[in-house]
Amino acid sequence: MTTHYLVLSALLFAIGGVGVLVRRNAIVVFMCVELMLNACNLAFVTFARQNGNLDGQVIAFFVMIVAAAEVVIGLAIIVTIFRTRRSASVDDASLLKH
């Protein structure tokens, strides 16, 4: 019954994961992360429906809040990096090593 939702959720998650790994542009990476989070949300809601309780829906709200906070901080960092380096490529920001 709910299998289709779950398959869709897995597909979205996989697309997001591949996007995070292969794209260079920070903004796109960011959006892929959002995609993964939303894939998870879909799975949570699906399970909530399947099990007939509200736990999954509650957690989906939490995830949305976390995602919103992440967007605020993440975008701020990306904008700052873009201002100083004139580039939004994640491979250029590799100074945080050694």
Partner: peptide
């Protein structure tokens, strides 16, 4: 520790 975010993610 290369510093490349994507390799960490991988």
């Amino acid at each position: 520790q290369t510093g490349f975010v994507r390799s960490y993610a991988l």
